[in-house]
Every structure is written in C-alpha cells, then in structure tokens.
C-alpha cells in the first residue's frame, strides 16, 4: 500500500504541476453526447457549453451500486487552462444533483494534460448516495503510437488505474482510445470489473 500511495502521489504531482486535462466542457456553443459504462454505472450524458468555461448537462443513468435509475443535472466548470505551443493543461470542477433529491449529489475534480504524443489525466469524485456514500478516483496515462493529421483516425494506448471506496481495491487495465472527426471511442478491459466503455460525439 505504501508503494501504491507513493506512486499515486508522484503521478498526481506530475499531473497537477506539469500537466492536466479532458473535455467535459466543449467550445462555446458546442454540444456533446456521451455514453459511459463501467462497474459502477451505465449512463447517457448530454451537455451544452454556453461558454468554453462551463457546461450544463443532463445525465440519465443506471446506478449499478444502488441498482436504480435516475438522472443528474450536471454543472462543470473549467478552473484553469494552460496552453503552450505543444501542450494543453486543464483542471475542472464537476458537480451534479440527482432527480431523486438534492441530498443525492456528487462533486469532483478532473484534470488532464496532453501533447500530441502524451496524455495524462486524473479524476476524483465523491458521490452522496441514498444507501452509502462513496468516492472514486482514477489516473490515466497514455501515448499516441503515431501522429495523425487533421481528419485522420487518431489512436491512443492508455493505462487506467482506478479505485472506489466501496471496494477499496485498485484496478489497472489497458484502454484503447480512438478519435475520428467528431467521434471518440474509448474501451478498456479489466478482468475484475469487465468492460469500461466511453463513446462521445461532439456537435
């Protein structure tokens, strides 16, 4: 556990000082539709960005922990962005209120840093639920095996490490991410948690 905490701290320090990012906020006027599935939930999420600094959205989900269906009204805010010639770093605050009541909600932080070749990101989310509250965390590190031009298929190989306070177990597994135009597909397979799937379409 000591080594794990040490490595996690190193990666988080690396991520938060030199790099961060992902795109839970689109360009001004942009909309995003997402499908997400992992061991905790299966959801469809639509968000609209009135500004590049924040997005508002609705997420319909099947909660695999509580075994019920409900929706979240979500708000995501870009706290910090750093652009350089070869990189972009982002830090976001995210929150949501459940359709089941204001006392059921979540808050979290999400960060990423990427170049055309490297990607690293982290997420931290605390969910206030009906039966038992929980926290989940993840880290992602990735590399693009080739640098495609605009309009090409872009490929990323990533390693994702995640945990939640319900199981208190860290799971690491490979993830494949593909981009083409306005579409993104991310698939990960963990022998303990089965598939992670994330599909995104921006318009």
């Amino acid at each position: 556990m000591g080594i794990r905490v040490c490595v996690l701290s190193l990666i988080l320090t690396f991520a938060s000082t030199t790099m961060l990012g992902a795109r839970p906020v689109s360009y001004t006027g942009g909309s995003t539709m997402m499908y997400f599935s992992d061991n905790l939930k299966e959801s469809v999420y639509y968000h609209y960005s009135p500004s590049y600094k924040y997005s508002l959205g609705l997420e319909w989900l099947k909660d695999k922990v509580q075994n019920e269906n409900y929706a979240y009204l979500r708000y995501t805010h870009l706290l910090n962005r750093k652009n350089t010639q070869n990189s972009q770093r982002n830090l976001y605050f995210q929150s949501g209120i459940s359709s089941e009541g204001i006392d059921r909600n979540f808050i979290g932080m999400h960060g990423d840093w990427e170049t055309r070749r490297l990607f690293t990101g982290f997420g931290l989310k605390h969910v206030q639920a009906d039966v038992k509250d929980y926290t989940k965390k993840y880290i992602q590190l990735g590399i693009a095996p080739y640098l495609g031009d605009y309009g090409d298929l872009h490929t990323w190989f990533l390693i994702k490490t995640k945990t939640n306070s319900l199981t208190n177990e860290w799971n690491s597994y490979p993830v494949l991410k593909l981009f083409k135009g306005n579409f993104m597909v991310e698939l990960g397979y963990d022998e303990n948690d089965e598939w992670d799937a994330h599909l995104m379409y921006r318009f």
């Binding site: 010639q85 070869n86 972009q88 990427e114 170049t115 055309r116 872009h154 135009g181 921006r202």
Partner: peptide, 12 residues
C-alpha cells in the same frame, strides 16, 4: 495557435 494539440480540439 497555442493549445491546439488534438484533432478533437480543432473541430470547433
């Protein structure tokens, strides 16, 4: 530009 690191970012 600065920060144009991916195809997805440039779509907008």
């Amino acid at each position: 530009l600065q920060g144009m690191v991916c195809d997805f970012c440039a779509r907008g």
